[in-house]
C-alpha cells in the first residue's frame, strides 16, 4: 500500500533520512520506532510529500507521488489521512466545522457535507459535540476530532505522528482501540510513529526500528521476535545484559505450543538439569502471546535440554562464555 524506496532527505548538511526502504502492506498497522532525531517524523512527512525528499520514491496505492505535479499531489493527499501529536485543529471552527474542512477542500456541496460530518462524528464517538469548540474538549476528544477529520475523504491510508503522545495512558488506550477498530472495519492501512512500546504492543502488526536516518530492522512483529539479536525484542522485553553462559529463550508466534505451556518444568523433568531463572517478561504482542526468559542451565544434559527447546520452535540464544 505504501512503498518507500531509497528515500533520502537532507537539511543542508544534516542528513535526516539516509536511504530508507519501507513496505507497508494493505490493511496492516505498521509502527515505526526510534529515538528522538532518528528521522521518524521526516519519514512520515515524506510519505505525503509535506517534505520533498532529496532522493528516492514514495508510492501510495500504486501511485508514485514524487512524480506528481502540484494539483495532482493535492488530490492524492485528499486520499491520505493524517493525525498529529498536538491535534492541529482550527481553533476558530467548531468540531463540525473542523471535520467539514477537508470536505470543503474536496468541493463537496454543503448539504452532503453536513450529513457526512454527522456520520464521521458518530464513527469516532463524538456525536453530541458537533457545536463545541476545540478549546472546550479534552485531549482525547480533540484527537477523535482529528481522526474524524482525517477520515473525511475516505482515505485508504492513515498517517499518524505520535498521535497519543500528548495523552494520558487511559486515553491513549481508548484512541488506540479506536484506531484498531477503524483498521478492522474500514480496512484502513495505518502507518504510525511512536516512541511508546505500548502502542506497538497494543495495535501494530508490523514494525520498524529507525536510527540515524536508517531502518535497522523491519517486518511483521512475530517474525522480528523470532529473529536472533532483534532490537525490537530487546525493546519490547528489556532484560539486563546477558551474563556469559546465560540462556535467553524467546517465545514467539512461531512457537508451536502456548506461551503459558510449562516448557521449563518439562525440561527439568525430562533432562538432568537445574534451571535458575534470571529474568523475563510475557505479553500479548500483535495478537499473539510472546515473551522472553533469561535462565541459567546447569547439569550434564544442558545441551540436550537446549536442543529440546529449539525443537519446540523457541528461539534459544546462549551468551558466549
Amino acid at each position: 500500500m505504501i512503498k518507500v524506496s531509497g528515500l533520502r532527505k537532507a537539511y543542508g548538511s544534516v542528513v535526516a533520512l539516509d536511504g530508507v526502504d519501507l513496505h507497508v502492506r494493505k490493511g496492516e498497522i505498521f509502527g515505526v520506532l526510534g529515538q528522538s532525531g532518528a528521522g521518524k517524523s521526516t519519514l512520515l512527512r515524506c510519505v505525503n510529500l509535506l517534505e520533498r525528499p532529496t532522493g528516492g520514491t514514495v508510492t501510495v496505492g500504486g501511485r508514485d507521488l514524487t512524480a506528481l505535479g502540484e494539483g495532482e499531489l493535492r488530490r492524492a493527499r485528499q486520499g491520505i489521512g493524517m493525525i498529529h501529536q498536538h491535534f492541529a485543529l482550527l481553533s476558530s471552527r467548531t468540531v463540525a466545522g473542523n471535520v467539514a474542512f477537508p470536505l470543503e477542500i474536496m468541493g463537496m456541496p454543503r448539504d452532503r457535507r453536513a450529513k457526512r460530518v454527522e456520520e464521521l462524528l458518530e464513527l469516532v464517538g463524538l456525536a453530541g459535540k458537533a457545536g463545541a469548540h476545540p478549546a472546550q474538549l479534552s485531549g482525547g476528544q480533540k484527537q477523535r476530532v482529528g481522526i474524524a477529520r482525517a477520515l473525511a475523504g475516505e482515505p485508504s491510508v492513515l498517517l499518524s505522528d505520535e498521535a497519543t503522545s500528548a495523552l494520558d495512558p487511559g486515553t491513549t488506550q481508548s484512541i488506540l482501540a479506536l484506531l484498531k477498530r477503524l483498521n478492522r472495519e474500514l480496512g484502513l492501512t495505518i502507518l504510525l510513529i511512536t516512541h511508546e512500546m505500548d502502542v506497538i504492543k497494543a495495535i501494530c502488526d508490523s514494525a520498524a526500528i529507525m536510527s540515524e536516518g536508517r531502518i535497522q530492522e523491519a517486518g511483521p512483529i512475530p517474525e522480528l521476535l523470532a529473529t536472533p539479536g532483534s532490537r525490537l525484542t530487546d525493546e519490547l522485553f528489556p532484560l539486563p545484559p546477558a551474563e556469559p553462559g546465560s540462556v535467553t529463550i524467546t517465545f514467539t508466534g512461531s512457537y508451536s505450543g502456548r506461551a503459558d505451556e510449562p516448557v521449563v518444568s518439562q525440561v527439568v523433568r525430562k533432562f538432568d538439569v537445574d534451571v535458575n531463572i534470571l529474568g523475563g517478561a510475557l505479553e500479548d504482542v500483535a495478537g499473539v502471546s510472546a515473551g522472553r526468559l533469561r535462565v541459567r542451565l546447569t547439569g550434564e544434559e544442558s545441551d540436550a535440554a537446549l536442543g529440546y527447546l529449539r525443537d519446540r520452535g523457541l528461539l534459544v540464544e546462549v551468551a558466549s562464555r
Binding site: 493527499r77 485528499q78 493524517m82 492541529a88 477542500i105 475523504g153 498517517l159
Partner: peptide, 12 residues
C-alpha cells in the same frame, strides 16, 4: 502544525 495539517489535506 495547523497550516501543515491543511496542506496534508490537499488544501491550495
Amino acid at each position: 502544525d495547523v497550516v501543515q495539517a491543511a496542506q496534508a489535506m490537499g488544501a491550495s
